[in-house]
Design a protein around this nucleic acid. Structure first.
Length: 671
DNA sequence: GATCCTCGAGTTCT
DNA sequence: CTCGAGGATC
């Protein structure tokens, strides 16, 4: 190693250390001028000898160029969401479940503030920061490495000799209150956009395409966990992990603490609640995690949320405003929803003007009148909701809401079924509102994914009489589109191209796009997998449909009714004529167990229900809930009940676990 | 029959 | 995000 490269390396290490002392510890040990001198020395060295430049050099925080957009990244381990609790009783229930599941008298918890920012993930390979991404939907997020590199509190490399092969650090990016105020003053002085709250400012900054801009905005980072690991020895507890992250120079919140039992949790909550206003950043609650990782593993997950952690949230901020009007909206299924039009009010960080009142009963229950003064908040800090009415302030001219007897859009009768909370327009697809919503659903990103077909466009197409059903979309021409107002040549081209692209789709998307009542994305996928193609699904009896997992009598009836409707069959036929198609999923018809239906009953000695189900489904079999003549196998464990009796009565083959495993093995590797 | 869990549907604002 | 309701499980 030459003297120069040794010097460059020393400079990098010294600068990284002082950067850490300054930005993370807030305890610099050298004057700024001296830091600047060292920085310039390194910069000069790198300019003269570009071969000395490394990715983790402090001079490389801001990348050179703005890029056209962000790419998607799939998290190696999903970034989960947490269950929420507001009431002490909910916290007590959380602690009780943890104690009972673990069989202990008292659980130790790691507590931390719940930052009101954006969750991000930082991947270090061989000690170098190689990727930073947003949480996104938890499965996939956006790659924002260049922007995250500009945060001085994020290490570009790990300050250790033998770094792990891979370490993924997770934490929150946020803007501190003081930084937010200063930024807005500067923005105003420059005549630029004012941010409404620190969270939005942080989100907007992180999504800047030009990292140089991100670098000029003051973002902070706090670590609170890890994701994918290779060659990293995970400590035994959350508390120890936080200590280790701090050793690796990651900022961790000073408010982190270990407590015992529910009393400890509630005391911690109170302490942080009292300190909230004085904290340098916004928080919306605190987070409790079972401290011991082995205990965490035993508690496991419920769907996408861990059972070993809970977010204890502060009550949402509430504000007073007035109800100007109560309108109704017509949804895709004809649901008539009353909506409160509010006098604009700033609450929970945004200005709220609308709030749903859900249904007639809800309006009665809350006793909301037009003209009332009401308390409003953002439920879960997102969706506005009317909390209560200040009855004392009800003006004399206030009047109650009356559910219309006829649809405000098509004039059809409004019907409320016995036992249902929703009122519905009976117009079906005759109702333009329902037709529009149906088209929007059809074009939805998760359905046929026709980009550029938003509500404004659909309004034009339906109101102009160009499009009546989804099939009409495929007959649209450039000439027709160019007659529409506000439709340039380019956007017409784009729309036609998007419609063209959607002709090739998947069966699951197609089924979802039809908008069958009670059939959402998940059920559409199940149906596609079970039936393999559309024709068998269309001709399926309710009996056949009931064989599909998670399809019960109500869903089966909805599907059957939908395909019995002549108009629906006609639209489907026209769609196929127009070239809408999907690959027939060969896999499903050629898998060894496809078409075979299993029913599990009782407790198996080794496999859990979920494992058994997963193993059967991998080979194309389906697992149904109840035994019928169409069931091929019943797998019975100990304490099998009525299902076993029914299987014997119907003469269905009964397997025990060993026989099932044998069957799976044979089918898996047929000789 | 009670309880847990998942899915569907409607919804707000930027 | 939240509610309600459908389905599965005990």
């Amino acid at each position: 190693m030459t003297d120069l490269s040794a010097r460059a390396r020393t400079l990098r290490e010294v600068l990284a250390l002082h950067n850490y002392r300054y930005h993370v510890l807030d305890d610099p040990t050298i004057p700024d001028a001296q830091y600047d001198a060292l920085y310039q020395e390194l910069q000069q060295l790198e300019t003269l000898h570009p071969e000395l430049l490394t990715a983790d050099s402090p001079t490389q925080r801001v990348g050179a160029h703005a890029r056209p957009g962000f790419t998607q990244v799939t998290h190696r381990i999903p970034m989960l969401s947490l269950n929420n609790g507001f009431l002490n009783s909910e916290i007590e229930a959380f602690d009780r479940r943890a104690r009972e599941s673990l069989g202990v008298d008292c659980v130790e918890y790691a507590c931390e503030p719940k930052f009101d920012g954006l969750a991000v993930s930082l991947t270090y390979e061989k000690g170098l920061l190689v990727q930073g991404s947003t949480r996104g939907d938890g499965e996939t997020g956006e790659e924002v490495t260049a922007n995250l590199r500009t945060l001085h509190t994020i290490p570009l490399s790990l300050p250790i000799k033998n770094p792990p092969e891979r370490l993924e650090v997770r934490g929150e990016v946020l803007m501190q209150k003081a930084d937010f105020e200063a930024l807005n003053i500067a923005q105003k002085a420059r005549g630029e956009k004012i941010f409404v709250n620190p969270r939005n400012a942080a989100a907007g900054t992180l999504r800047q395409l030009d990292p140089a801009l991100t670098a000029r905005r003051p973002l902070s980072f706090f670590a609170y966990g890890v994701g994918a690991l290779e060659g990293f020895a995970l400590p035994a507890t959350q508390g120890a992990l936080m200590a280790q992250l701090a050793l690796l120079h990651f900022p961790v919140a000073a408010e982190c603490a270990l407590v015992s039992g529910v009393e400890g949790l509630l005391a911690y909550f109170k302490r942080i609640q009292n300190a909230r206003a004085a904290l340098p950043y916004d928080i919306d609650g605190v987070v409790y995690k079972v401290n011991d990782f082995a205990q965490q593993a035993r508690l496991g997950f419920v769907s996408r949320a861990p059972r070993f952690a809970l977010a204890h949230k502060f009550p949402a901020e509430e504000a007073l405003t007035e109800i100007m009007e109560i309108d109704v909206q017509v949804g895709r299924t004809g649901t008539i929803t009353p909506v409160a039009r509010l006098k604009p009010v700033f609450v929970g960080g945004v200005t709220v003007t609308n709030a749903t009142l859900h249904n007639e009963d809800e309006v009665r229950r809350k006793d909301v009148h037009v003209g009332d003064t009401v308390w409003v908040r953002r439920a879960g800090d997102v969706i506005p909701e009317v909390v209560s009415v200040e009855l004392g302030q009800r003006p004399v001219h206030a009047h109650a809401f009356v559910m219309p007897t006829h649809c405000p859009v098509c004039g059809s009768q409004v019907i409320r079924e016995e036992g249902e909370s929703a009122s519905r327009c009976s117009g079906g697809l005759f109702c333009p509102a329902q037709r529009k919503e149906a088209l929007l659903h059809f074009a939805h990103r998760r359905a046929m994914d026709i980009e550029g077909l938003g509500d404004k466009r659909v309004d034009q197409l339906v109101d102009g009489g160009w499009v009546h059903s989804s099939a009409d979309l495929y007959g649209l021409t450039m000439e027709q589109l160019s007659q529409l107002p506000l439709m340039g040549e380019k956007s017409a081209e784009n729309l036609i191209a998007a419609i063209q692209r959607s002709r090739t789709t998947t069966l699951a998307r197609f089924i979802f796009s039809l908008g069958i009542r009670n059939v959402g994305e998940a059920t559409a996928r199940d149906l596609a997998r079970q039936f393999g193609d559309l024709a068998p699904l269309m001709s399926a009896s309710t009996e056949d449909l009931l064989q599909v997992p998670d399809v019960g009598p109500v869903v089966a009836q909805s599907i059957h009714d939908f395909f019995a409707e002549g108009h629906n069959r006609e639209v489907i036929e026209r769609l196929q004529q127009q070239g809408v198609h999907w690959p027939i999923h060969e896999a499903s018809s050629t898998l060894p167990l496809s078409g075979k239906t299993f029913v599990l009953t009782g407790t198996l000695p080794h496999l859990s229900r979920d494992e058994a189900r997963a193993r059967i489904e991998v080979l194309g079999g389906k697992v149904a809930g109840s035994v019928s003549a169409k069931t091929h196998y019943v797998v019975a464990g100990s304490e099998a009940g009525s299902k076993l009796e029914r299987a014997q009565a119907l003469g269905v083959t009964v397997l025990d676990e060993a026989q099932l495993l044998l069957l799976l093995k044979q089918e898996h590797s047929p000789s």
